[in-house]
Design a protein around this nucleic acid. Structure first.
Ligand SMILES: [Mn+2]
Ligand SMILES: [Mn+2]
Ligand SMILES: [Zn+2]
Ligand SMILES: [Zn+2]
Lengths: 146, 146
DNA sequence: TTTTAAATAATAATAATTCTTATTTAGGAA
DNA sequence: TTCCTAAATAAGAATTATTATTATTTAAAA
């Protein structure tokens, strides 16, 4: 997504296309690592030295409310953000603190169908998320899903 | 689990059975709500007015390290603790901030088998967790799984 | 009973997040 | 294009969450 497309994306949600919002969203789309607020800040700072950390916090929460970004949390507590809104799950590597997308339509469908069949009374299901936790064997190398 | 059983449980893990640890663990076993540190503190305080908040933090982390309690997190960020170590999943109600256990051996097996079949290279899976997010329809009433 | 390593209480320090307010700015109106 | 205004930002203060420090207490082993 280029700058103009991002601008249109924001406009569609009724959000002013400020420079700060453009760079934060571009950063999130680029880094697919599910970065923390601090990580977005550090990434953006060199090219935008006057941007404020508070603005990053505010901007990311604005995006969450507008539904163009989602929060992802791990057992380690730090809050992370994800611009990938397609229905997907996460692999969390405890030794490297990485979060990696795990996309598997078939699995999603299986679980979704199973839970819908099950019927949970007095509750409306909005989202089902699978978290696969474990550790990278060689922290230098990438995880690859076969 | 009564006080003596909890005492034995701690001893088995090589942890001193201090009064503070006994009441914190008993509290977690009793409240199955996946309470936060603050909630454990408030629950315990009336009967133990000299207990320190720092001790609750320390104690819960000690339990996590010893493997007798696990952390549970939600997208809202607050850290919660769970003494239920059986393989189970969670229903998270966003409007009431409640976490409820969802126990379904069959579903667990299906997902586990699927992921094991899939093979994730350079990664050792330790745990698979499903989080069902949504909202209570009537916040006063309980969620019931059929 | 005595000893001692480990745990706790109290409090200080640090880290994470939110709030406040003066200033700036995007985008619509003129 | 220029003007206007509501909304957004920067800077810093305040709040909240968590961790660290240290003197005192205590569980449990000798
Ligand atoms: Mn539970
Ligand atoms: Mn936090
Ligand atoms: Zn993701
Ligand atoms: Zn649970």
């Amino acid at each position: 997504m280029d700058f103009e497309a991002i601008k249109a994306h924001l406009a569609k949600k009724g959000l002013k296309a400020t420079h700060q919002r453009l760079v934060v969203l571009q950063c999130l789309l680029m880094l697919k690592n599910h970065p923390s607020v601090e990580q977005v800040y550090e990434k953006i700072r060199p090219g935008n030295p006057t941007i404020s950390l508070g603005t990053i916090y505010k901007t990311l929460e604005t995006f969450v409310e507008a539904g163009i970004v989602q929060r992802v949390s791990t057992k380690e507590g730090a809050m992370k953000y994800d611009a990938n809104l397609s229905r997907h799950d996460h692999i969390y590597s405890t030794n490297t603190q990485e979060i990696i997308d795990f996309e598997d339509e078939e699995l999603s469908k299986i679980v979704e169908n199973y839970i819908n069949k099950k019927r949970i009374g007095n509750f409306k299901v909005n989202d089902i998320r699978i978290q696969i936790e474990g550790e990278k064997i060689n922290p230098e190398k990438d995880i690859d899903i076969i």
